[in-house]
Design a protein around this nucleic acid. Structure first.
Lengths: 127, 127, 127, 127
DNA sequence: GTGGTCTAGACCACG
DNA sequence: GTGGTCTAGACCACG
């Protein structure tokens, strides 16, 4: 499910977008699956319904979900748009690191470590 | 040198921090090297001196540079803090992508491509 | 026949109106032809009968069909009202595009292309 | 300038988007030109600043404008995105009309008439 | 001063 | 009941 971190600088609506994109990318949410109603999800997360609505609106504009009046929001055909949300940011950070002179091997090591941690099942607390 | 992209969503002071950290990480700026005076750098970049001062303040707080009243700012002993700025953000994005189900191979491919582009497009710091 | 696209932002009842107007404009439905009963069409389309009833109500209000209590709905005398539904919306969008500075030639090109596609892709009603 | 029609079914924020896109398409607003501040435009139009902010946010997501923190919103490099807003809707309506059997000549006539009216300088009151 | 985010609450169309 | 729009008002980062 989706968790909100009010500590960071990432807006809540963006966190919701990423959460849903993640579920789609992982295959948990499939094409035509119904998303929780904006007001329901808002109550679960303890935030204002408008914030969830904003997230849903962005996802619809991005073609990742579609909405039916009076029925709810549904997962659109999956064409890699959900994954792109993550790979594009990853690529940007890769570019910055490389430009700053971080050796390729260091980046590969980080990936290996993060993947190993993920496989082990923890949230990334350094093993 | 440092370039500022006024278009993007990254604050100017953060771009200055990254620029300087990049110079340190690449070895262009070495321990005890003097940084350009805030007003000078501001004039070069065509921005407000306060913005440069803010960046210098952050770098000092992070222990990456030190300042001597009336003399200016200098590069502190290099203990990997400058690199960390990039590797930490890279690791965070890696973690997000992995958590979202992006396969490790996809991430490796992106790194290979970015490094290849960097090696082709500049003096060859892609490794 | 009529097809409903549940995905889009056009309300279902409006899609039904357009579908029927299209059949009339093309001459498939002629004056005094009986429309399918609301419940029957609703079942065919897999939607709520009230939605079809709403569409029929709008068409009757617009003088495109007429209803006889207990007998059903019928196509009214065709005075171009069905066509008008499309030409008026087309004209409105044309006006908006022209007002926004889109050159006439660009609009003509679009028409040529759409007509060519229509002629190639179906029974040849592209003219 | 931009005018808002509260009568119709087009949301205010979309009308603002179209108004600005029109100015860009016509060349009145050029690359790097500054848009009126959201609060100023809102006061001029007699609407809530949030509504203007929503329009600006959409235009930025669409790559038509860019914003600089504390400075305002500016016209991005013009790559035809502003025009697309109009030509896509026009094409959709063309497609609908053609599918409904409206003859190509009728569509051409409408364009000729609308263009003639526009050239004559009136807003489209039928001459 | 500027845009960005969020809350609270209202009303609407759709089905 | 659902999403979509809008208002009113607050607070924040940025420069």
């Amino acid at each position: 499910m989706i968790t909100i971190d009010i500590t960071g600088r990432v807006p809540m609506y963006e966190q919701i977008c990423r959460g849903i994109c993640g579920e789609i990318a992982k295959g948990v949410l499939k094409e035509n699956d119904r998303l929780p109603a904006a007001r329901v999800l808002a109550k679960e997360l303890g935030i204002n319904p408008n914030t969830v609505a904003k997230a849903y609106g962005i996802l619809e504009r991005d073609g990742i979900i579609y909405s039916i009046a009076g029925r709810g929001c549904f997962v659109a055909k999956h064409e890699g748009k959900a994954d792109k949300r993550f790979t594009e940011e990853f690529e940007e950070k890769t570019r910055e690191a490389v430009k700053a002179g971080v050796p390729k091997d260091t980046l590969i090591e980080i990936i290996e470590r993060v993947c190993a941690e993920a496989a082990a099942g923890n949230g990334g607390n350094g093993q």
